[in-house]
Design a protein around this nucleic acid. Structure first.
Length: 215
DNA sequence: CTCCCGATAT
DNA sequence: ATATCAGGAG
């Protein structure tokens, strides 16, 4: 009955056909590495994150390693990802908190995750979904932009968008849908120059008609 | 709301 | 030159 749900289902099916095996593009070997990589991914491409973590994880492996490394050393190691001072602090404080509160393990609930320093809902849902199989909508810049263009939400606040999307999709599809939208955002529905004619779901999207000839 | 910030595409 | 990239904290 809900037209939004119906459209969301169709878009999900089309995207799934286009991208059969959805998976995070971030390289990691365990939940902790994924957590670090996701913190580094703020306002940075996953490609750049993978370059940095490739060498980073050779040098530092455990939460203990990260909690003990000098801050300026960590800053130098992650500098190419941008926001390197904030991220270095977040990662180091986060590693310390994991040691103190969870004996070095990464927790598997949203409340525990977002209580960690430098971890918000986006980062938490990425790790929960990919490392623990816990359902969650990941609202990053791509998901926010595409959700607005597709008319899934009128909101700009990421938390409101997250709840709007949770309402129009079954829980079992939250994680995959997030990843599918991110793939779409990278290849077609880009921020600056969206390639609507080639978009695999343009027939289900109201946005192309809205921007006919933007000079 | 502002600040943090390097790398890349346009 | 400028917009944008798997955001979060104060």
């Amino acid at each position: 009955m809900n037209p939004l749900r119906s459209r969301a289902e169709k878009i999900f099916k089309s995207l799934r056909a286009t991208y059969p095996h959805v998976k995070t593009q971030l390289h990691f070997k365990n939940p902790f590495e994924l957590l670090v990589a996701t913190i580094l991914s703020a306002q940075c491409t996953d490609k750049q994150v993978n370059i940095v973590t490739g060498t980073l994880f050779q040098r530092l492996k455990t939460p203990k390693d990260f909690s003990q490394v000098p801050l300026d050393t960590l800053e130098a190691l992650i500098r190419p990802t941008g926001y390197f001072r904030n991220k270095a602090k977040s990662i180091k404080n986060c590693a310390t908190a994991l040691l103190e509160k969870y004996d070095g393990r990464v927790p598997d609930t949203l409340e525990e995750m977002v209580a960690l320093p430098g971890v918000g809902r986006k980062t938490a849902n990425v790790v929960l979904g990919a490392a623990f199989g816990v359902p969650g909508i990941v609202v990053d810049t791509h998901v926010a932009r595409i959700s607005q263009r597709m008319g899934f939400t009128e909101n700009k606040d990421p938390v409101k968008i997250e709840f709007d999307l949770m309402e129009i999709l079954p829980e079992s599809k939250w994680s995959d849908f997030s990843l599918l939208l991110i793939y779409l955002g990278r290849e077609f529905c880009t921020a600056r120059k969206p390639d609507c004619p080639r978009c695999p779901v343009n027939r289900h999207c109201p946005w192309p008609e809205k921007t006919p000839l933007k000079k």
